[in-house]
Nucleic acid binder design. Structure first.
Lengths: 134, 134
DNA sequence: GCATGGTTAAATGAAATGGTTTAAGTTTTA
DNA sequence: TAAAACTTAAACCATTTCATTTAACCATGC
């Protein structure tokens, strides 16, 4: 059965990985080679990427591009920029500073290092003031 | 090119639809039958569903199930329940009431009708107090 | 050096997906 | 009610995807 993008095999491997098993250990359990476990895991992450990109497209469908937060930017400067840009187009952002930082961080936790942005972040906003990040 | 789950064809159709065109109008523009536009559009929504399910799986991988908000529940009762359940397992929710309602609503806007929940919503929480909805 | 953990490339077969047509159905609405 | 809008089913073919194997390749740590 395949509910979602991930195959049963891929979910199985991800779960074992989450438990801290090595690829070799997993290979032994599911009776295949570690190379295969590696490729299955890799395919899983590619599928997850695709899923994220798909939903991002959805956002851009009814949201307009607000601004780009450049890599290296301080988080607090970033939210300042977001508020400023939103004001320019007369949309009130639906989040306070704290909420905004939380939204940013949870959109893709790996993208932040402490107070700094690691990669460029595209910011979209809906007419209702909801934010999406790409 | 296919960046994400949706094919170029599918994105094209979704964009035209967002502009309010009928399937027949789109069919004329892209030189095919309206039946085909229908199936393309349908496939697009199936892919979007898959994308959502995929990310939901990711959440459940490192989040634990907190509670189920039953269809018909008042939103304000729902957030009360969420706070109560989180307290039981000694996790502090990372959102205030307003932020929590926003998170809920944007997780799947069609699922809410005014102050009420239309379909059951599964609530997951991470150790850090982040919430996900399934 | 050599065991361990991880990654990569090439090849293969089975399964699925995507776009298409044709043709038969609903539902909506003017 | 009749036209317009939308949905569904069946069949076709080309392309892609998945899991798999084998065999090689980089690190790291002892």
């Amino acid at each position: 059965m395949k509910q979602g993008l991930l195959t049963d095999r891929q979910k199985e491997v991800l779960r074992f990985r989450k438990q801290g098993l090595t690829q070799q250990q997993i290979a032994d359990i599911i009776h295949t080679s570690k190379a295969n476990v590696c490729t299955i895991e890799k395919a899983a992450y590619e599928n997850i990427e695709k899923a994220k990109e798909t939903l991002e497209f959805l956002y851009t469908l009814d949201a307009t591009h607000l601004c780009t937060i450049r890599s290296g930017t301080d988080l607090f400067d970033a939210i300042g920029e977001i508020y400023a840009e939103a004001e320019k187009i007369h949309i009130k952002v639906r989040y306070d500073s704290i909420g905004l930082i939380n939204r940013l961080k949870e959109s893709n936790p790996e993208r932040f290092k402490g107070r700094f942005v690691r990669d460029d972040v595209e910011v979209y906003i809906t007419e209702e003031g909801d934010l999406c990040f790409g």
